[in-house]
Design a protein around this nucleic acid. Structure first.
Ligand code: ATP
Length: 656
DNA sequence: GGCGGGGCTTTTTTT
DNA sequence: AAGCCCCGCC
């Protein structure tokens, strides 16, 4: 090489075998622009691209490449907005490389926030033994605050919860929040504010955090502790965020503060797929990214590898009708396929029968169940299809709706562990006490307060009660004496004892479907055995979307089932064949969202672009209202299209 | 005062 | 299916 007299010797590096292997893969699996992102996205980088253009694939390969370069996964933060997307992305990354990426800081913002606050929270006064409130818990606490401050007020806890959440996630002032989210109650702004303040105070007293707090206190931590901000900036050598169009102000701030020094930040997104504005998501985060991070490199991916030209064509026609949308070029790579089908059915029953019949046909032709997705705007839209699938014995999984942990019987069981972990948590304590006869709202509240003050369960039994309540307490004491001798670390044993000694009977007394619920509890107990840390068990249960019975299956066991999913949870996923249910005006777009039609349209756009080759869009001629069939209007999203050109139309008739 | 059962209505989207 | 409200009973 250079001769020895040269003072400046050129350094020639022989790449490691790992890196070489990886480079070869990249060469094969990615197009030029994607490859550029994977190899060159040091410093602030923004990828803007349409559906199916390989955004997620690019992020996944980027992580793989960083690991191949020798970066440890524990120095990489890989964020996304929903559980579904997080799991999908982490699985895909793991499939790509041999090194375990278990240690990666990956998952949803909330998940990572929790991990950070358990360690650093005390710096800003968060006791690390906090419990996490799910939505229902937090609404219960809000209700309590409302009741205490304004017993006569007829505001609902639901609307308040929404406003509080929007406030925290957007950082807007109350005036704006109410104007945007609830102009009809703008005159009640003071009440809203007062209840909010009380709610915030009560959460600290009970040492509980709601979902928004997991982000908010993370933000506060970064803002207020320079030292921690530095530690976290240094810890994460690379940060990658998928679905950036669905992040909100608070999340944008977290990213900004975590990238104050180290500027290795790669975000990818598509403004046309922004569908979480109700959580405060804003494409402003994408738009202002280059300003927040000067020197940002912007990459565009224009090829669509997922869908046939017919499907892309339909998608383009849909999104064109949004006026406040940036045009994005999408070039289909796949060969021409068949036209999407527009299917007219009579009602939800016929819809279900149609969908299931076609699924059976597809399966006969060799399409796997897991390559079929059934998508819908609202959970209850899928009820009829679920029944029909069950009836016909076709395996399926439902995503969206009640999560495993959110079911009443699971929360009942867990409430015991939550008060053992944090006896200040009055909300969990109330839930637990109410399981016993003679103890209702009022007594449960009293008992939970005693528990919070004394942190001593036995104090409860020294209180004075009358008749039936006394009997309830006797039962409780009986159980408690059996539970208190079990060490808390042995929490699965605690669950087992509580279930066998009491809760099983309770289920049988209270629920006709107690058999199903008992099965769930069995699953819960089995799941708990996999954890040796109670904090981790409780957090993950609350923050992950365990889907029903699937929660115990071995990871990569290839399961073959049809996926039923809300469109929101289907984001980032794809199927060979996709059904979109209920394109009926009022259902989709939902009558509750008429003030945000463009977002509903984007939702339709997201749904359509999940399909690779076959797409069935279903609309109704009539529908049932209390056993009567009334005429319905097809969705405006269909009526506004030249649908005779874009679709092949089908009409369903039943054989007699 | 407080518990619990019954009958009514109503279903957006997620962490 | 679950929330919500109302009413009867302890
Ligand atoms: N360079 C490529 N060559 C072949 N297939 C590709 C390439 N890039 C992406 N794909 C495939 O295209 C499909 C879509 O990719 P991916 O899910 O990463 O897209 P996306 O941009 O994240 O989509 P969306 O925004 O809709 O979630 C996947 O099946 C992926 O494997």
């Amino acid at each position: 090489m250079n001769n020895q007299f040269d003072s400046e010797k050129k350094i020639f590096i022989i790449p490691s075998r790992k890196k070489k292997e990886f480079l070869e893969r990249i060469e094969e699996d990615l197009n030029e622009e994607q490859r550029k992102v994977v190899l060159e996205a040091d410093g602030p980088s923004l990828v803007i691209a349409g559906p199916g253009s390989g955004k997620t694939r690019t992020i996944v390969y980027r992580v793989g490449y960083l690991v191949a370069l020798g970066y440890s996964p524990k120095n990489i933060m890989l964020l996304t907005f929903t559980n579904q997307a997080a799991r999908h992305m982490i699985n895909r990354t793991q499939a790509l490389i041999r090194e375990s990426i278990e240690e990666i800081w990956g998952g949803t913002f909330h998940h990572v926030g929790n991990r950070i606050l358990r360690v650093y929270g005390k710096i800003i006064g968060i006791n690390e033994q906090y419990n996490i409130l799910d939505r229902e818990d937090s609404l219960d606490l809000i209700d309590e605050c409302l009741e205490e401050l304004f017993p006569e007020e007829n505001l609902g806890k639901g609307i308040l919860g929404e406003l509080f959440s929007y406030k925290v996630n957007t950082g807007k002032n109350w005036d704006e929040v109410l104007k945007i989210k609830a102009p009809q109650i703008i005159d009640k702004i003071e009440i809203v504010q007062k209840v909010f303040e009380r709610y915030e105070k009560r959460k600290r007293e009970l040492n509980v955090l709601d979902y928004d707090d997991l982000l908010f206190f993370w933000y506060r931590l970064l803002l207020e502790s320079e030292k921690t901000r530095k530690i976290l900036n240094d810890r994460f050598l690379y940060i990658l965020v998928d679905e950036y169009q669905d992040t909100n102000w608070l999340q944008g701030e977290i990213i900004r503060l975590t990238r104050e020094e180290n500027k290795n930040i790669l975000v990818v997104g598509d403004d046309a797929q922004s569908i979480y504005s109700f959580r405060g998501a804003t494409i402003e985060n994408i738009l202002s990214f280059p300003e927040i991070f000067p020197g940002t490199r912007i990459f565009y991916l224009v090829f669509n590898y997922r869908s046939t030209p017919e499907i892309i064509n339909l998608a383009n026609e849909i999104i064109k009708r949004n006026t406040r949308q940036y045009f994005k070029e999408i070039k289909p790579v796949l060969k021409s396929g068949s036209k999407p089908k527009l299917v007219w059915v009579r009602d939800d029953e016929e819809e279900a029968q149609f969908v299931v019949e076609v699924i059976k046909e597809l399966h006969k032709e060799g399409v796997k169940y897991k390559d079929i997705g059934v998508l819908f705007r609202s959970n209850y839209h899928s009820m009829a299809v679920q029944m029909e699938l069950t009836l016909q014995g076709i395996p399926y999984e439902v995503r969206g709706g009640l999560r495993f942990f959110e079911q009443a019987h699971i929360k009942d069981m867990i409430s015991l562990l939550k008060i053992l972990f944090n006896p200040q948590d009055e909300i969990s304590a109330q839930r637990f006490f109410k399981l016993f006869p003679g103890i209702g709202r009022a007594y449960a509240k009293k008992l939970s307060q005693v528990l919070k003050e004394s942190k001593d369960f036995d104090k409860i039994f020294q209180m004075q009660f009358s008749g039936r309540t006394l009997e309830g307490l006797r039962i409780l004491k009986n159980i408690w004496d059996k539970i208190k001798v079990i060490p808390v670390q042995n929490f699965s044993e605690i669950l087992r004892v509580f279930f066998n000694e009491y809760y099983k009977d309770y289920l049988e007394r209270n629920y006709p479907d107690f058999k199903d619920r008992e099965k769930d509890v069995d699953q819960l107990i089995l799941l708990s055995e996999r954890y040796d840390d109670l904090e981790k068990f409780l957090s993950e249960l609350t923050l992950y979307t365990y889907a029903g019975e699937k929660l115990l299956e071995e990871e990569e066991e290839e399961k073959d089932f049809v996926v039923l999913s809300t469109i929101h949870q289907a984001k980032g996923l794809e199927w060979h064949a996709v059904f979109i249910l209920r394109l009926v005006q009022g259902d989709f777009p939902s009558y509750k969202s008429m003030d945000n039609i463009e977002e509903e349209r984007r939702l339709f756009y997201v749904a359509v672009t999940r399909a690779k080759r076959e797409l069935y869009v279903i609309t109704y001629l009539t529908r049932k209202v209390k056993d009567m069939n009334v005429f319905t209007k097809p969705s405006m999203f269909l009526e506004e299209l030249p649908y005779k050109e874009l679709f092949e139309e089908w009409i369903v008739q039943r054989e007699i």
